[in-house]
Amino acid sequence: MTTIYDIAVAAKVSTATVSRVINTPELVSEKTRAKVEEAIEKLHYAPNALARELVTKSTNLIGLLIPDIANSFSPAVVDSFVGEMERNGYNIFVSITDADPEKENKCIDIMLKKRVEGIVLLGTRRMDRLANERIGILARRIPIVAIDYMPGAEGVCCVRCDEILGAFYATEYLIQLGHKRIALLNGNEEYTTYYYKRKGYRQAMEKYGLPVREEYCIATTPYFRGGYEACMQLLSLPEPPTAMFISGDQMAVGAYNAILSSGLKIPDDMSVVGFSGSPLSKAVYPPLSTVSQYARETGSAAAGIMLQKLRGEETKERVVFQPTLVKRASCGPAKQ
């Protein structure tokens, strides 16, 4: 196997000069650089990655932790983030945590052993500040960016959508259509995203003087099955709601199945608003009204902040996107 010494002999320069051509070519004269590059090409030399890391003190490796691969919001975020980082010369080491704190810690340990230069965490976090304590400590050593809100983790930059405002918009829209019996299908409210969506829902209901009926507020798993089961539970009530704000597009599609399989029509018998703005919202019939939270822009913003932190530049601690309510055919006026 060709070594850096072989290149130095062929080019009639020192090994130190060959190293400079490989790692900092701007420090070498054009004439010398040309000789070394010719020798590298002739001898088919490929620098050893580990050796190069030891010289440059850089792995160009970024860790990306995601809770699962089933969430309809995540793919566009990941695609945008990874694309931006790769265009800037970084490779991404992805780990799936299953939203399990113990597994997340193990994944972080592996990433640190791989000498990642920064870590990005995608997804909702527990509201408990102690649950995020390790992330705050780790942020003192390497750049950390959270794509969501992270309570109690100082030094962690957060990129997120204003979910309180988004939930408020969705609920207010249903109220303005004349609905008074409005349900909330939500996830586990011990987690940030669902905590804030419930808050936005309640704010809208209270602003318009409508009661928040606890039997209309159901926490379920944030996927198709959870949406289906929660919706069936609502439809079985003596006085079911006439409209639903659902905290994720996947849950909303599950609710669609429950509504239609019960012989009801959307929006004639039930109006539905989702949250995410994922491609799913346009794939169902009738097309789903939803709150867009700008997935691709979120991934790009997270990459921009990570790159700034890696360069030692000043960064924003918070980037908050303002949500947009996308009105489609899944909502209609309440029946009088």
Rank of each mutant, 00 (worst) to 15 (best):
D100I: 13
K113V: 05
K103I: 10
T97N: 05
T124Y: 07
N88Y: 06
I119A: 00
K113R: 10
E154M: 13
I119Q: 01
G152Q: 09
M150C: 15
M127L: 11
T97Y: 06
E104C: 06
L138W: 03
Y90D: 04
M150V: 15
I137F: 04
K106I: 10
P101M: 07
E102M: 09
R126P: 03
E154R: 15
M150L: 15
D148S: 09
A139N: 03
A139Q: 02
N132Q: 04
G118K: 00
F93W: 09
E86M: 15
I96C: 07
R125G: 09
D98F: 04
R115T: 05
D128K: 05
I135F: 06
L121M: 14
Y90S: 03
A146N: 15
L130D: 13
A99P: 00
V116C: 00
K114Y: 01
R140N: 09
N88M: 09
D128I: 01
E133I: 00
N91M: 13
P143W: 10
D98P: 00
C107A: 15
I135K: 03
A146P: 10
N105D: 13
P143Q: 09
V116W: 00
C107R: 03
A131N: 05
A139G: 02
E86G: 11
P143M: 11
G123I: 11
N91Y: 08
K103D: 01
A131T: 05
A131F: 05
R115V: 06
D109P: 02
I110S: 13
I119R: 00
G152N: 12
R140T: 03
P101Q: 04
I110V: 14
E133D: 03
M150N: 13
N88T: 06
D98I: 01
I119G: 00
M111P: 08
I135G: 03
I108N: 05
M111Q: 08
L138G: 01
